[in-house]
């Protein structure tokens, strides 16, 4: 059916209402991201080059990516596992209700409590004169005499878990809520042991949510700058830290290499997001 001309015009004019917002997002998000993409392929004189990208595969940049991916993988897996176990323990029957709201509220805070203050909280705990370090030393076992350091890759992982575990708890709780009690009862009536229930019902249903949540955790850790900086002042070679050096360091360096490093992060995070969205869609099937 033909639409009257007047209605057609009002529809096209209605688009104008979204223009200020779209301009803002373009100017301060899409244009800068696009500039990173283009700048990564430029040389100092403004010509096109693949030099910056190929430099990413040389040291120390190759190690920076390897470290960043390793830290993100470890904290996503360990944080995902601990977050899930804690979330399940808090939600399952028998646990007092107040514990659930306490953990959820606290996780909302802790998941946002990244950065400089978090780094210091762990320096006060596990730093060379930290409370726990001193406690262990008094027991006769100084962790710093046994190869441990908070200002290392392991240290960064321990600190990142402080926001990874609560993020997992927040993201996975709705999925655990979606595990219907009838399923467990039905499985039990059919003679399934708790282990069999998890093996054949619980985990398969939760799997898309678990994978999606861990991808989110991976990206969360991969993008983090402030916490690692506050902890080690740049002593651990991670991609965001290396990018930071390009803009704060005394060395006059090639900004296009910084853009190439940033582009590498964009690519990794975009791949994560591409994997995340379909998983999320599949996970929501059970919560309908």
């Amino acid at each position: 059916m033909l639409r009257p001309a007047k209605a057609g015009r009002s529809v096209s004019l209605a688009w104008l209402g979204a223009v200020p917002f779209l301009i803002y997002v373009f100017a301060f998000l899409l244009l800068p991201a696009g500039q990173v993409l283009v700048g990564a392929f430029k040389d100092q004189q403004g010509g096109w080059t693949l030099e910056n990208i190929s430099t990413l595969f040389d040291e120390p940049y190759r190690s920076a990516y390897r470290n960043s991916i390793e830290v993100s993988l470890v904290t996503a897996l360990v944080g995902g596992f601990l977050g899930f176990m804690i979330a399940y323990s808090v939600i399952r029957e028998g646990t007092p209700r107040f514990l659930r709201s306490a953990f959820t509220t606290f996780s909302g805070v802790a998941a946002n409590f990244a950065g400089i203050p978090l780094a210091f909280a762990f320096i006060a705990t596990l730093g060379t004169i930290g409370i726990v370090t001193q406690f262990l030393t008094n027991l006769g076992w100084n962790p710093y005499d046994h190869g441990f350091s908070l200002f290392s890759k392991t240290g960064v992982e321990i600190v990142y878990l402080y926001f990874q575990i609560p993020l997992m708890l927040l993201v996975i709780s709705p999925a655990i809520d979606g595990l219907k009690r009838e399923w467990r009862e039905a499985a039990a009536n059919l003679g399934a042991s708790p282990l069999q229930f998890w093996r054949h019902v619980g985990l398969p249903v939760l799997m898309p949510s678990l994978l999606g949540a861990m991808i989110l955790l991976f990206g969360n850790s991969f993008a983090a700058y402030a916490t690692a900086y506050g902890l080690t002042a740049g002593g651990v070679n991670l991609v965001p830290i290396t990018i930071g050096f390009f803009y704060t360091g005394d060395v006059l360096s090639n900004p296009h290499l910084g853009e190439a490093l940033a582009l590498g992060m964009l690519v990794v995070l975009a791949l994560m997001m591409l994997a995340y969205v379909p998983l999320q869609r599949r996970a929501s099937r059970w919560s309908r």
Partner: peptide
């Protein structure tokens, strides 16, 4: 479209955004 744009900041973290903002 706006829902999609709201996901873009997760792909463009602060450290990448600031590099782009400097350049622009």
């Amino acid at each position: 479209v706006i829902g999609f744009l709201a996901l873009v900041p997760f792909v463009v973290p602060p450290i990448v955004l600031v590099v782009g903002l400097f350049a622009v």
